[in-house]
Design a protein around this nucleic acid. Structure first.
Ligand SMILES: [Mn+2]
Ligand SMILES: [Mn+2]
Ligand SMILES: [Zn+2]
Ligand SMILES: [Zn+2]
Lengths: 139, 139
DNA sequence: CTATAATTGCAACTGATTTGCAATTAATTA
DNA sequence: TAATTAATTGCAAATCAGTTGCAATTATAG
């Protein structure tokens, strides 16, 4: 039982949500991976959880701030929320599909400035840079 | 026949693509709107074009640079490419769904810098700020 | 105007996500 | 700890988004 597992349970309990094996499994899968599409996530459960339940668990996780959606490759993927990892964004390689995390405070304040200028109250933002990683650039 | 309609025809012809009524209609719908989801776009055609053809036309438009996908609200929407409008990104209101275009050169160079630092060759990027517009903030 | 090539519409299909409901499991209470 | 209650899950079936094959239609070129 590590630190983040404890935080998970606290969040669940404080929202009157049960701590189930299915929820723990999904949390652990997310802990060990880059952002996953629903299908990738479902595959990683190795049929231990019904697809429908995976969808429902993710919906719940998002609603209480355990997980979050990120826009990647024209659809969303799921990763743990900023409660469990540093806020960041991704470069995604169009050739090998690798994602590279970027942590950049300057970018963040730039976005805040833009929102302010537009009288806009930011809840969230998505940034994705699509292109070719250093490994895939030769051709 | 306005200027951008002429550009459209030139692009089609230079790619050996026919100028059809269906393609003109879709181009005109896109010209008059904010980014549209495929479903919104299909609705706006008022059944004058089969859904399948709308999908195929958009695929063609994207492949020759007439239109482009943008990530908005966890799925992609379609808008005319930067050939027909200035490169920009969007704020999207979670309450009223309005999109607000932002043109910001500083943001663009910031992204380029980040890509460079990561030895990444950028093809494209997506930026979306989700939150509440000035009209929807009172509550 | 005719011939040729490209495009469209239709029917059917696939894969992703949602919904209703009964069976199971977790949390609470005694 | 056992019984009760409430939440969660799995299964079947529905819906929605996007795709494919093919014949009918329309556009382009000669
Ligand atoms: Mn960020
Ligand atoms: Mn941009
Ligand atoms: Zn790569
Ligand atoms: Zn609004």
């Amino acid at each position: 039982m590590n630190r983040s597992n404890q935080i998970l349970k606290d969040i669940l309990k404080s929202n009157r949500l049960s701590v189930t094996n299915q929820r723990l499994l999904i949390f652990n899968i997310l802990s060990q991976n880059q952002p996953l599409s629903m299908n990738e996530l479902i595959k990683k459960t190795n049929s231990e959880i019904d697809r429908v339940s995976v969808y429902r668990i993710i919906e719940t996780f998002i609603s209480v701030g355990i997980a979050q959606k990120v826009s990647l490759g024209w659809k969303y993927k799921i990763e743990l929320s900023d409660t469990f990892q540093d806020h960041h964004h991704h470069l995604i390689c169009l050739a090998c599909n690798k994602t590279i995390a970027i942590h950049n405070q300057g970018l963040e304040s730039y976005l805040n400035k833009i929102a302010n200028e537009n009288n806009f109250e930011t809840k969230n933002h998505q940034i994705e840079i699509q292109g070719y990683c250093s490994d895939c650039q030769k051709s």
